[in-house]
Design a binder for these strands. Sequence first.
DNA 1: TCAAAAGGCTTTACAGCACAAAGTATTTCT
DNA 2: AGAAATACTTTGTGCTGTAAAGCCTTTTGA
Lengths: 124, 124
Amino acid sequence: MDNKGRYAYEGLDRILHEKARLGIMTSLLARSEGLLFNHLKELCNLTDGNLSRHLQVLHQAQLIEIFKGFDKKRPQTLCRLSSEGRERFLAYLEELERVVRDAATSAREAPAGPGGVPSGWMPA
Amino acid sequence: MDNKGRYAYEGLDRILHEKARLGIMTSLLARSEGLLFNHLKELCNLTDGNLSRHLQVLHQAQLIEIFKGFDKKRPQTLCRLSSEGRERFLAYLEELERVVRDAATSAREAPAGPGGVPSGWMPA
DNA sequence: TCAAAAGGCTTTACAGCACAAAGTATTTCT
DNA sequence: AGAAATACTTTGTGCTGTAAAGCCTTTTGA
């Protein structure tokens, strides 16, 4: 079998492949005009500090843009997907789809298997 | 909007949501009889130490079973999905599918957006 | 009018984790 | 007998997700 690397999934970008950031990016993908800090915080069930840190990471990676403004007198932060961010996220999603398809296929084709200790082997 | 937590994806189990382990689990799902250490190593493009560590984690979490045996005189390690592992992985995959669907829907429905600085805002 | 609370984030601290490099033990080759 | 190969495991290090604490301004309340 030359299946070497068949399941390596190298397209799963470390920065994007992270629960919280996946949520952030998906939220932003739905709203091309951007989302406010607090709205994002609620959508993703994140704490202030947590969200702040993830936005920093995404911003440094050029995946999102961050804008500062005011609502009345209170500071506000607006986050928006950069066009590079959109592209890279869509690419990431394609790989993710591959994972899901691979697994679905396997689950369908391979029976659940009997369990028990295979003969000639010892449980670890 | 009561969309609170809409994009929190809490079903994304930390142990499973990891590039390398995703590959391992998907490989194992395809082969209910199990896979040998070295085969798995190739399929997932992992180093010995790396694979060893991930198997440890998956084993401690009861997601896989590990058996020791011999091929001629050489030690061999066989890895197999436990039934709990199969269940939990399938559950994880359902959540993953939700992510992909959410994103696909958004990408289709939301236009790419114009870019440029929104008026009244300052780039960070 | 002046302290106290609320809003809107940032910074800090730390535990946990992935990964690479080095190590161990046995076996086969020369 | 020594060297190389096989099959992993253990150790060490640097990164990073997360909670807790901090900071500054604005609003509220007595």
